[in-house]
Design a protein around this nucleic acid. Structure first.
Lengths: 209, 209
DNA sequence: TAATGTGAACTGTTCGTTCAGTTTCCACAG
DNA sequence: CTGTGGAAACTGAACGAACAGTTCACATTA
């Protein structure tokens, strides 16, 4: 349940009723303290370490208050994680559309293979059984990611390099879905080579022309 | 810890030390009873309903025994789910490689969109924080799935329809990763149209030739 | 003075473990 | 072919620990 204090703004900066954020000074301080503590906990021990009690203890914010700011533990973690990742993977600019997209897939693959990737998978897993947390995860993390890729895709469209009949959502899912698949199932490792192979296959197609 | 009674066989039928199965009559009966009860519970209420206590109560098998047959609750559920899905998605045979692959993606997408797909996502999520369960999930479910796709892919290779420089793992991840991505994040719905769009894009590539 | 946060206790759920006692079945002796 | 000793396997019930989320009387502050 969002705090009654006001509507606040969502991750993108726009007003967003669903993710109401506190506007009064005291609330802001408390909110930030909780997010900071959660970021530290995530860095140290992943999502399992970011229990509600741990967040409360580390931040000095009481559990009762935490549940006035967020609907669930997962939601706090999702917001904290999203903040950390705001500028983790920069947009590449290699000069060519293919170069940019391949590079982006490689960077994201490396990110997934890193400790932050572990947290990502834990959050995604937690979102499955926590719809409230899932909304925060989409808003604070996924949306930004998809927006970044959309920018690359548009560059490709302007250059006339990419197929006009493929929409950006399909392209995004095709390029990054395989990485998520590997991350979650662990059936194959997330190496640079694998990432490049996936990206090239996505760009050039699986069929012989 | 597997029962010391014997080595048993894994999902594929081959002997498999890791997933040792009971060979003594009493053990077999108990094992089957547990799996059957778990299948019913999964059908009725998904993974959340298949708690250890519920499985024990429904099957008449004691918890202590369950933990002698499986390393964790997730592992029981993974085996039960894998059994149910053994023949859920048949291999298509449309006459063309492209037709087969597109149809397979569409069928899998429908499966993910169904109640069984929910269970799939719950199991995948649970596997993230339960390595023992993850091994069972890979062995009893994913391996079979990948094998089925591999068969389609090989047909394509024999016909000379698919790129020779793309390996089967890359192709599998490219075709089905996007579906898993959507299923897990819920950012976009799993419709037939979306599935076909993904499949065609994967087959023909994202770039203008 | 009304909104907001605190602290501490409390409920409820679930996983996984333990262990003493009971049932089953296998192998071997007769 | 039969019967039995003993090991293997299962039961039942209780228990500990962890954690999510709630509640409420009281304190703080804008």
């Amino acid at each position: 349940m969002p705090p009654p204090g006001g509507t606040g703004t969502g991750p993108g900066g726009q007003p967003h009723a669903l993710f109401a954020r506190p506007v009064r000074p005291r609330s802001i301080k408390v909110h930030e303290a909780a997010v900071d503590a959660t970021r530290a906990l995530l860095r140290e021990g992943g999502l399992p370490a970011a229990t509600i009690d741990a967040i409360a203890a580390r931040s000095g914010v009481s559990k009762a208050t935490l549940y006035k700011h967020w609907p669930s533990r997962t939601a706090v973690a999702a917001e904290a994680f999203g903040r950390d990742m705001a500028d983790a993977v920069p947009l590449p600019d290699t000069g060519t559309t293919e170069g940019d997209l391949v590079e982006q897939v490689r960077l994201v693959s490396r990110f997934y293979a890193s400790p932050e990737g572990t947290v990502f998978s834990q959050l995604l897993a937690a979102s499955v059984t926590d719809e409230g947390g899932a909304a925060y995860f989409r808003a604070w993390f996924l949306a930004g990611r998809r927006m970044a890729v959309a920018r690359l895709w548009e560059r490709g469209v302007e250059r006339g390099d990419v197929r006009a009949d493929v929409d950006v959502d399909t392209a995004t899912d095709l390029l990054f879905g395989p990485l998520v698949f590997r991350l979650m199932t662990g059936h194959l490792p997330l190496t640079d080579d694998a990432a490049e192979a996936v990206a090239r296959a996505a760009l050039h197609g699986l069929l012989e022309e």
